[in-house]
Write a protein that binds this DNA or RNA. Structure first.
Lengths: 249, 249
DNA sequence: CGAAGGCTTGATAGACCTCAAACACAGTGG
DNA sequence: CCACTGTGTTTGAGGTCTATCAAGCCTTCG
């Protein structure tokens, strides 16, 4: 078993992430640690990879914050997903070589690139690693499904409340929140692009939520003041996050 | 190589589907044909599996038409996806055992259930089958992403046009369309639940599209009268369907 | 101190929803 | 054969939610 203290922080992120998804054997860990990584830094509001690009590697978010998005012909943007440290935003490029959307940073972000070829090799030799990666991509799809419901059938107030519930749970699960308090490096315009509303309406709705004592959201810091109330107005059920480990029994 | 004429229609559907995703070797085919199947029939508007259920098998749509959906607390329904013959609607249950959404039929539908245990065995022994299944689940996620954009940033007119574009391409690719003419067994209310609008607004919008000469939609039969015009108003780019086979070179 | 980006508020417009009712069509049973 | 029923479609009227346009304010930072 390798000494975890001698493992780079990038690799440790990867291990922690995978370990939260499946039970890793010592061999699995060794294999993951042996994976070659190329570390890179991006400023805020930079693209890591763009729609139509062909990817040869996947990127692991080591620190910072990123999102997936698409821009349509009239210039409007839709944000599809948010990525915290430990996430692999373009995991799908392993089997979908040409990008159908872009990945961009919302804060200064450090990423580690992992070559497709080596990743595919790992999945062939280590079924547990394959299971972890596959399961992770399926959880992302489950989050997409809930995102669809949010946009299709919820009011503005509920959309924002629901997204905040999701991000609160995910930040807490990733150990990035202090109780119900965390930094979400997102402007109101970006929030609007995530929930399919105008920036102005998001602003007014946040004001209402503040007035209702549900949250505070100042200088990119979110506090869920009334978690139960928030969950209730959002009609939030975390089942879709599938946060418990895979049980193959 | 097994004689394809002696293979049951259910198995042939499965082979055709997988063959459209990756290059199968004779061994891959044999393994797929050896998969035990349990065939079942469902009437229209029946649930195949419900949110919160635990699945022990995946279902392959052999004939008919199905959808994924969620119902939220105020009773509203959001349709998340449509499934044509060859699709595996609950493939994600392989690694996400508890369902975060329901799968229901929209027409009388025949399905073939495949036990998880055997499927997982196949993925361990046959990397190409694993790649095909994984890629298929990633394509579904790509379709979810575009669904999000549709709901978040497109007008009612565009949403419907865009969904029709998608279904037209998918029906044609699956060999279920006669030119630009096919049967989409969906009521206007169901269409509304798919695009996040009210049934009444969908009705009026369809009338406008008819008036504009883009489509006809009568007795569940869709005809794209002006495919280029339809694509243009919908701002439709089929890149996200990833319809070409996987190329691992 | 000026500039830039983000936040906030007001006013107006328009897209889409809800309620209500009529119509069309297929299947059913007398 | 025909009323009858149920499901799906269509149209009208009115109301609400959210977008757009316009402008002012605040904070940060060079």
């Amino acid at each position: 078993m390798p000494d975890p203290n001698r493992v780079s922080p990038e690799r440790r992120r990867l291990l922690m992430k995978m370990d939260g998804i499946v039970d890793l054997s010592p061999e699995d860990r060794r294999a993951l640690i042996a994976l070659p990584l190329r570390v890179a830094e991006f400023p805020a509001d930079a693209d890591i990879i763009r729609e139509r690009d062909r990817a040869e590697e996947c990127c692991l978010v080591v620190s910072g914050f990123a999102c997936g998005y698409k821009i349509i012909s009239n210039g409007k943007r839709q944000i599809l997903s948010f990525y915290t440290p430990g996430d692999i935003p373009d995991l799908q490029s392993l089997y979908l070589r040409v990008m159908d959307h872009s990945i961009g940073t919302l804060a200064p972000t450090r990423v580690a690139f992992m070559p497709h070829q080596q990743l595919i090799g790992l999945t062939r030799r280590f079924p547990m690693i394959a299971a972890a990666l596959w399961r992770d991509s399926l959880i992302e799809a489950a989050i997409f499904r809930e995102w669809i419901v949010r946009l299709g059938r919820r009011s503005a107030y509920q959309r924002i409340a629901h997204l905040i519930c999701e991000m609160t749970m995910r930040f807490r699960a990733a150990g990035l929140a202090d109780d119900y308090n965390y930094t979400l490096p997102v402007t109101q315009a970006e929030l609007a692009d995530a929930v399919g509303l105008s920036m102005i309406h998001v602003n007014r709705t946040l004001r209402d939520m503040r007035k209702d004592g549900l949250i505070t959201f100042q200088r990119s810091t979110i506090t869920a003041l009334d978690w139960e109330g928030l969950k209730q107005v959002a009609d939030f059920d975390p089942i879709y996050l599938h946060q418990r480990r895979l049980d193959l029994s």
